[in-house]
Amino acid sequence: MITEMTYAEAARLALEQEMERDPRVWALGEDLGPEGGLAGQYRGLQEKFGPDRVVDTPISESMIMAAAVGAAVAGTRPVAELRFADFALCAADELVNQAAKIRYMFNGQSRVPLVTRQAVGMRGGTAAQHSQSTEAWWVHIPGLVVVTPATPADNHGLLKAAIRCDDPVVYLEHKGLWGMKGPVDPDAGPIPLGKADLVRRGDDLTLVTWSGMRVECAKAAEMLAREGIAVDLIDLRTLWPWDREKVFESVSRTGRLLIAQEAVRVGGFGAEVAAEVGEALWSKLRAPIRRLGAPRTPVPFSLPLEEACRVSPEQIVAAAVEMTKGKT
């Protein structure tokens, strides 16, 4: 039965269901028990599954990730909570040099079926060390899968898929979405990794996004519709692998590609999408590809400063209007 629930509740439900389904699944991280996670996304699970399967850890990011790596190669399926994506950088070695490479270096003798959950993005003035969008870092690393859910239903289905995946998965939940409500089918199975969501259909322009920026893009698409500009809004959902097929089909139809991301624009994942589309579909483009993203600054604290670094629906609209000027 479809139920309204928050993005955080949906993830909690998915983990609970996966832990019931598979006794090898367990979770570890700081503050999972008493606090239930940053947003309650682990609430009640330690009571239900016990402290050996929902493990409260010290503030030891390297060891949180390494424990997940070691336990994954030794027959379990850990979910390693790193809280803020910024803190996961303390465990970058264990993720990049170990988790991502073990299967390859050892010629397939072992998989590393771990999920590392890392909260990304700006939310209410958390400033430079608690607000980063780090997805492009991980996309660059062979061996990793990178997932960026943007709705409650996706946070339910994609977390299930991530836990069942035999590859190490970097699972980036957006802090700004924790309280967002939406319909979730609790009985729904995993959502296939690598499949984008065509949120809205329109033939004038393809708007590609992921994670928290999906919300701004949906607002922008609504505003554009009122001005007579119909966009295909695509939420990639998974950045590695990403759904080339869906994006290419859309751009072949619209001839225009606009990419909006919260992360720093330079070297961001939007650049990868733009380059791939440019290489494959240049003859079908009716306007130059455009990317919107944050300036290359740390995320500032004060509200007007933070807003100066955010991509707004108005900016998306302005770019789309410019790109579709004189559209036929």
Partner: peptide, 15 residues
């Protein structure tokens, strides 16, 4: 890093 991974393997043994 071999040490931290072994500790993780030991945690799997316990689980």
């Amino acid at each position: 890093d071999g040490a931290t991974i072994a500790v993780g393997a030991a945690q799997a043994i316990k689980i």
